[in-house]
């Protein structure tokens, strides 16, 4: 019996929160890319655009997982 037990997190809410957080970071990075482009730092702007789009697609994937977890919960209820 280990004393340090990680509390079991259940449900789709953590996934949803993670997805939204990554989405926010992605939007910030995408805005950075415009700002870099404004200062004529072309390569930096394009790289941060790539980073932003990667983060955006990652966040969409996390959100999709959250959506499926929500689907299992919403119809399944307590029986599993």
């Amino acid at each position: 019996m280990s004393r340090f037990r990680i509390p079991k997190v259940r449900g789709f809410l953590p996934l949803l929160a993670l997805g939204v957080a990554v989405l926010a970071v992605a939007i910030v990075v995408l805005m950075w890319s415009v700002a870099y482009m404004e200062r004529a730092m072309v390569a930096t702007a394009l790289i941060s655009g790539l980073v932003g789009f990667s983060l955006l697609s990652a966040s969409l994937y996390i959100l999709r997982l959250a959506a499926y977890a929500y689907g299992v919960e919403a119809e399944g209820g307590s029986r599993s």
Binding site: A67, Y68, A69, Y70, G71, V72
Partner: peptide, 11 residues
């Protein structure tokens, strides 16, 4: 779509 129309089977 899964958020709008959740389905246990597909999920």
């Amino acid at each position: 779509i899964p958020f709008l129309a959740p389905s246990r089977k597909i999920s």
